[in-house]
C-alpha cells in the first residue's frame, strides 16, 4: 500500500473575483518526485500556495497524511500556514522571499524553527551545506549581498532545513543562468527519497525530463496529463 502524503480533491482557489484554480484533483505519494509543468500564469504557484493556505480564497479538500487542512476560506490568508508547516510541508516560494538582513546561517536556522529541529539546527545546517557546498564559506555573509544563484540556494536550503515530508519547490530555475539552475536542481534530486516527497513546479520541461517519476501538466487552472485519456490508436 502506497502512502499518500498529499491528497487534493476539488480544489478551487483565486484572488477576489478572479478564479485561478478549477476543481483540481491531485495526489502525491510517499517517495515520489513530481514535476508540475505549465506556462506562466496557469496556476502552478497558486496550487502550491493554496496548499499552504496563502491565496486569497480557496475551497475544496486538501489532506496531508489523511489530515484535512483545506475547506472553504475567503479571508485570513496565511493565518494557518505556520500550522501547515509544522505538519511537515515546506514551500520554497517563487523568486526570493527571503530575509535580506540576516546572515546565511541565521537564515537557515529560520527553517529549523520548529522545536525539535531547533535543537539539532547545527547538524541540519551542515547537511544543507553538503548539498549546496558554495554556501559553506558564505555562512556569515548577509543574504542581501549574495548573488542570485546563491540566494536561491539559501532559499531552497531554508526549506530543506525543515522537518518536512513534502517539499514544494516553486520555480527553482527562475531567473538563473542555465548552468546554475541545473546545479540547483541536481542538488535537489540528490536528496534521499525515503518517507519524503517532492513537487517541483517548472516552466522548463527539459530541466525535469527523466529526473522525475511523474510529470503533471497545468493549463488554465486545470491539470492535464495526469487524467485518464481514451487512447487514440
Amino acid at each position: 500500500m502506497v502512502h499518500e502524503i498529499l491528497k487534493i480533491e476539488g480544489l478551487s482557489a483565486g484572488y477576489g473575483p478572479l478564479r485561478v484554480l478549477h476543481e483540481i484533483d491531485f495526489s502525491v505519494n510517499e517517495g515520489e518526485r513530481i514535476g508540475l509543468v505549465g506556462l506562466n500564469g496557469h496556476g502552478k504557484s497558486t496550487l502550491m500556495r493554496s496548499v499552504m493556505s496563502l491565496v486569497g480564497w480557496q475551497n475544496g479538500s486538501i489532506k496531508i497524511k489523511g489530515q484535512e487542512i483545506g475547506g472553504a476560506r475567503s479571508t485570513g490568508a496565511g493565518r494557518r500556514t505556520h500550522a501547515i508547516v509544522q505538519m511537515g510541508v515546506a514551500l520554497t516560494p517563487q523568486g526570493d522571499a527571503i530575509f535580506p538582513g540576516m546572515t546565511v546561517a541565521q537564515h537557515l536556522d529560520c527553517g529549523a524553527y520548529s522545536k525539535i529541529a531547533w535543537r539539532e539546527r547545527a547538524k541540519r545546517r551542515d547537511a544543507v551545506m553538503d548539498i549546496f557546498p558554495p554556501l559553506r564559506k558564505l555562512e556569515t555573509a548577509l543574504v542581501g549581498t549574495l548573488s542570485g544563484g546563491e540566494r536561491r540556494m539559501v532559499s531552497v536550503g531554508r526549506a530543506l532545513m525543515t522537518e518536512a515530508s513534502l517539499y514544494l519547490i516553486d520555480e527553482p530555475s527562475l531567473g538563473l543562468a542555465p548552468k546554475i539552475s541545473r546545479s540547483v536542481l541536481d542538488a535537489l534530486f540528490s536528496l534521499p527519497r525515503e518517507g519524503k516527497a517532492m513537487v517541483i513546479a517548472e516552466q522548463n520541461v527539459a530541466l525535469l525530463a527523466g529526473k522525475v517519476d511523474r510529470m503533471v501538466g497545468m493549463h488554465a487552472g486545470r491539470l492535464r496529463g495526469d487524467v485518464g485519456h481514451v487512447a487514440l490508436s
Partner: peptide, 21 residues
C-alpha cells in the same frame, strides 16, 4: 530570531512555521 524574521519578511516567516499573529 522569530521576531527578526517577522520584521524582515512576514511571508517568509510564515513559511518557516512562525505564526505572525
Amino acid at each position: 530570531l522569530e521576531i527578526t524574521a517577522m520584521m524582515q519578511n512576514p511571508e517568509g516567516a510564515v513559511l518557516s512555521g512562525i505564526s505572525v499573529r
